[in-house]
C-alpha cells in the first residue's frame, strides 16, 4: 500500500507557521547563539555538512533549538548553493592545536593540552568562583604537532587499509555495498552525533569487543585553501575549527602473518569530540575483525551503521509518520474488519 497524498489545509498551515514564528520568536540573535552556544552551532555544521557558523546559528534560531531540525535547515541550504570546486586536502597533522590529548601515551611530543574544556569540572549547577589566571605568565608558542600515532605508523606497527582509487561523494551517488572507504568516512563525518554514540556504545557493552584507547584526539584550526583563478597560486580562504580522533583498537593478525594494531579515524567540523571519538570507534568496529564476539556485532555491520546514523534522514522518516496516513490506516483497519467478518464475526 503506497502513501496517498492529501491536499487542502493551506489556511491552517499558514496560521500554524505564523503561530510558530510568534511563539518561538524570542529575542536571542544568531550572533549570540554563535558566541555562546558554540557546541550546538558546531554540531549543526557537522551534521548539516556545511561549514557556516553564521547560517548554523540562524538555523538553530529558526528551529527554536530543535537541533535535528536545525541540521535539516542547513543541509537543505547546502543543496541550494552551487559547488564551486574542491579545496586542497586537509591533513590534520597540520592543525593549529587548541586541545590535544592522548590516553595511550603519557609523554608525547607537544604534550597533553587540555585546551578550553570542562572535562574535570564537577557536574553540579553551582555558581562558580572566577579563577583569575594570569595568562601573561605562560609561553605564547604556536602548537603544531603530528599525530601521537605517527611514530608507530612509521614503524609499521599499525594496520593499514586499502586506499580508494577515487574519492566517493555520497551527495552525488550513494554507493551500494561493498562501500568504498571514502564513502564510509563521509557518511560518518556528517552523521548524527547521538546515533553514532549509541552504536559506538554497543561495541563496549557486550555487542562488540572494542575497548579503544584514544591515541590522538585533537581540536584546532585547519586552513582551507583554493587556487586563485587569475594568478593560479594557492590562496588561503578560511580557517575552520575541526576535531579529529585516532583511536587504537586491539592486536590483529594480518594476511602476511604479522600482527598489527588496529586503529579507527574520526573527523568532523567544529569542536565535536564525542562524535569524533564515536566515529573512530565505529571505524575500528567496521574494519577490524572481532576476537571475542565475532564479526556479527551490530556496529560491525556496514549496512546497519551507514543507513542509520544520518540525523536528517532518520528524523525525516520518523516524522513523516505524523503526516496524514488516513488511507493507509483505513485500509489496514478494513483488512482487520474483513478478516473478523470472514471468521464469522470474531469479537
Amino acid at each position: 500500500m503506497g502513501y496517498v497524498a492529501v491536499k487542502g489545509g493551506e489556511e491552517a498551515i499558514k496560521n500554524s507557521l505564523s503561530f510558530y514564528d510568534e511563539e518561538f520568536k524570542g529575542d536571542i540573535k544568531p550572533k549570540d547563539i554563535r558566541e555562546s552556544l558554540s557546541f550546538a552551532v558546531d554540531k549543526i555544521m557537522s551534521e548539516g555538512s556545511l561549514y557556516s557558523k553564521k547560517l548554523s546559528s540562524v538555523a538553530i534560531k529558526k528551529s527554536a533549538g530543535d537541533l535535528l531540525n536545525a541540521a535539516f535547515f542547513l543541509r537543505a541550504h547546502r543543496s541550494s548553493c552551487a559547488r564551486v570546486g574542491m579545496a586542497k586536502t586537509i591533513n590534520t597533522d597540520d592543525m593549529r592545536i587548541i586541545r590535544r590529548v592522548s590516553s595511550a601515551f603519557k609523554d608525547i611530543q607537544g604534550g597533553q593540552i587540555l585546551g578550553p574544556s570542562n572535562d574535570y569540572e564537577v557536574k553540579l549547577i553551582l555558581k562558580k568562583v572566577a579563577n583569575k589566571t594570569i595568562w601573561s605568565e605562560f609561553i605564547s608558542d604556536d602548537i603544531f604537532v603530528e599525530s601521537a600515532l605517527k611514530p608507530l605508523r612509521n614503524k609499521g606497527l599499525i594496520k593499514e587499509l586499502k586506499k580508494d582509487r577515487e574519492i566517493a561523494d555520497i551527495t552525488r551517488i550513494f554507493p551500494n555495498s561493498p562501500y568504498p572507504r571514502s564513502a564510509v568516512l563521509q557518511i560518518m563525518s556528517r552523521g548524527e552525533g547521538g546515533s553514532m554514540l549509541a552504536f559506538a556504545y554497543t561495541t563496549m557493552r557486550g555487542y562488540g569487543d572494542v575497548h579503544p584507547t584514544i591515541g590522538d584526539l585533537r581540536i584546532g584550526k585547519c586552513d582551507v585553501k583554493f587556487t586563485h583563478p587569475f594568478t593560479s597560486k594557492e590562496v588561503k580562504i578560511a580557517e575552520i575549527e575541526s576535531t579529529s580522533c585516532e583511536a587504537v583498537g586491539t592486536l590483529e593478525k594480518q594476511e602476511d602473518g604479522s600482527t598489527k594494531l588496529t586503529t579507527g579515524y574520526g573527523f568532523c567540523f567544529g569542536f565535536n569530540e564525542t562524535k569524533a571519538i564515536s566515529m573512530a570507534i565505529l571505524d575500528i568496529s567496521l574494519y577490524s575483525s572481532s576476537h571475542s564476539i565475532g564479526s556479527g556485532s551490530i556496529a560491525s555491520d556496514f549496512d546497519m551503521i551507514l543507513h542509520h546514523i544520518d540525523g536528517v534522514e532518520s528524523m525525516g522518516f520518523t516524522n513523516h509518520y505524523k503526516l496524514p496516513h488516513y488511507v493507509t490506516f483505513q485500509s489496514n483497519l478494513q483488512v482487520l474488519m474483513n478478516a473478523k467478518e470472514h471468521n464469522g464475526g470474531e469479537k
Partner: peptide, 11 residues
C-alpha cells in the same frame, strides 16, 4: 560551496 577533502591516516 567548496568540497573539503580530508586525509585519512589509515589508508
Amino acid at each position: 560551496t567548496l568540497l573539503q577533502p580530508i586525509k585519512d591516516p589509515i589508508s
